[in-house]
């Protein structure tokens, strides 16, 4: 791969990580959705650059799929859900923000250490992109753990999948077509089901606060 595309992909990776941190520290749910859409956009740009520099046709398709699903359809569904549920309040975190960000920082270091031996092997990627992909997954995971509101957990879940897609696109030039289509379909259906759930949760508990969902325990 020529050096210019590599530089561009590195920039995209850095942007992805930055957006993950922004999402982690963001309190408003609607802004989180915007950040998610931005992440999708950066992701599709990075896939496009890979496709363009390696002349792989199926990557163009994958880029289009990402653009359609993660920048247009899913954020649209999320925004409509939030409006209809009237759920755009600030979400409080379980820990205070500085400590969450500090944990996030440690997670990034951990991800890099974990990915180190594999990055060394890779011929297709610059060192670090796999580490960043893993870090994006872990930061999304952290976001799911520290938020009490259902919508934030959904956004975290989707952001996690972004990290994975970036890992697939940067390390192996994307997964086989059939798999990528299947994954996209699963994510879309999952999102729709989660949307249905949010309505059920609010209907039952008259709130989207997940602390109501802790009654099933062994006692």
């Amino acid at each position: 791969m020529a050096s210019l595309p590599l530089e561009l992909i590195n920039t995209c990776a850095a942007l992805l990580l930055l957006l993950s941190f922004a999402m982690l520290s963001q309190r408003r749910v609607l802004t989180q959705v915007d950040l998610y859409a931005a992440q999708g956009l950066v992701l599709s740009v990075s896939i496009f650059i890979t496709a363009w520099s390696t002349h792989q046709l199926h990557l163009y398709f994958s880029c289009g799929l990402t653009l359609l699903l993660k920048v247009l359809v899913l954020p649209l569904i999320l925004r409509r859900l939030i409006h209809r549920l009237d759920a755009n309040w600030e979400t409080e975190t379980l820990l205070n923000m500085p400590s969450v960000l500090l944990i996030g920082l440690l997670l990034v270091m951990f991800a890099f250490v974990l990915a180190q031996p594999i990055s060394e092997l890779a011929t297709t990627l610059t060192h670090g992109t796999l580490g960043i992909a893993l870090a994006v997954v872990m930061l999304a995971f952290l976001m799911m753990i520290t938020r009490r509101k259902a919508v934030s957990q959904v956004v975290g879940f989707l952001a996690m999948e972004n990290g994975l897609l970036f890992a697939a696109a940067s390390t192996t030039y994307g997964m086989p077509m059939a798999v990528e289509l299947g994954v996209g379909l699963d994510v879309l259906v999952g999102m729709i089901i989660l949307g249905i759930f949010l309505f059920h949760i609010r209907e039952q508990f008259e709130s989207l606060d997940l602390s109501h969902l802790e009654s099933l325990k062994e006692d």
Binding site: A150, F157, L194, F197, H200, Q204, H212, L213, S215
Partner: peptide, 15 residues
């Protein structure tokens, strides 16, 4: 069954 318990269980299952 859309009971509170059922919804909680399904949410946990999903996440």
């Amino acid at each position: 069954y859309r009971t509170p318990g059922g919804i909680e269980a399904a949410w946990k299952y999903f996440i």
